[in-house]
């Protein structure tokens, strides 16, 4: 079980994340929602120890997460990667095996097999010798997904995996979420998309520096909560063009401006 207790993060005297607590069980897929600057990325980075926490504690199966990072797979935002880097698809997926391989060793046959299976699973094995920059955004995201699968982790953290990806990639990602869930892995996924895809999550966390609400879709996405999370009252079904998410969950519309690459 992932247990986040009273986690706060501050950047130069302003709070990015304030006293957030929640738990995530193995076999659960949780969606982390919130507006730009709500602290979603900061929360995930703080869980991994990538940025310092002002307070709080994070445990995975009753041990601090930072003491067992090999059990955690992290897929960062696409914007944080240099996609011109001279590296092939297979090598990128292989990076998921580095912490289990250890220093001064070359990758085992078992690692090669895991990487092959992972790349085949996301439909990228045939591109294994391609340079990463030759791929489309969706394909690049799938390679990173393969890297996370190959790591054979227990806890998966995804930072906006659906940004700029095609619908084929989106459905592959959701299929894999379901498979990982069936294998009793725990997944925490930052999403910007308030569309019908929310049905794929067992649990939602609505963040606006503080945790506004956590639980099932029905309990979290109430007008009152949305109002608190996006600092604005949104009448149900009224799509808004000024960058604020409306509730396409209920109107069944996708809002394309929400898919833009963003950084929290």
């Amino acid at each position: 079980m992932l247990e986040v207790r009273n986690l706060s993060v501050s950047y130069r005297h302003t709070w990015a994340v304030e006293r957030v607590s929640f738990v995530l069980q193995p076999g659960q897929v949780a969606g982390l929602l919130g507006s730009n600057g709500a602290g979603k990325s900061s929360l995930i980075k703080a869980i991994l120890g990538l940025i310092p926490c002002a307070s709080g504690a994070i445990y995975w199966k009753n041990k601090p997460v930072t003491k067992q990072l090999n059990k955690v797979a992290y897929v960062s935002q696409r914007s944080q990667i240099d996609w011109d880097y001279p590296v092939t698809v297979e090598k990128v997926a292989m990076m998921g095996r580095i912490s289990s391989t250890g220093w001064f060793r070359s990758h085992s046959k078992h690692s090669h097999l895991l990487v092959r299976q992972a790349l085949e699973r996301v439909g990228m094995w045939q591109y294994r010798a391609s340079q990463i920059r030759e791929l489309s955004g969706g394909q690049q995201q799938r390679v990173f997904l393969a890297r996370a699968i190959a790591q054979d982790a227990e806890l998966f953290l995804f930072d906006e995996p659906f940004n700029n990806v095609d619908s084929q990639t989106e459905s592959i990602i959701f299929d894999i979420f379901a498979e990982l869930k069936a294998q009793q892995k725990a997944l925490l996924v930052i999403s910007h998309d308030l569309s019908e895809t929310l049905e794929n999550y067992d649990k939602l966390l609505l963040l606006n520096k503080k945790l506004i609400a956590a639980g099932s879709i029905e309990t979290v996405l109430t007008n009152e909560n949305i109002n608190k999370a996006y600092n604005r009252y949104l009448p149900v079904g009224n799509s808004d063009q000024r960058g604020f998410p409306s509730l396409p969950l209920l109107t069944n519309q996708k809002t394309p401006e929400l898919q833009k690459s963003t950084r929290c």
């Binding site: 980075k45 991994l48 120890g49 990538l50 990072l69 090999n70 955690v72 992290y74 897929v75 960062s76 944080q80 990667i81 240099d82 880097y85 590296v87 090598k91 990128v92 292989m94 990076m95 580095i98 912490s99 391989t101 220093w103 001064f104 070359s106 990758h107 890297r147 790591q151």
Partner: peptide
């Protein structure tokens, strides 16, 4: 030669490398 794979990971994806505990 000794640290090739770690350096490649770090220079390609510093956050990912740090998240893996490198």
């Amino acid at each position: 030669k000794l640290f090739y794979k770690e350096l490649e990971f770090y220079t390609f994806d510093p956050l990912g490398a740090k998240a893996c505990g490198l």
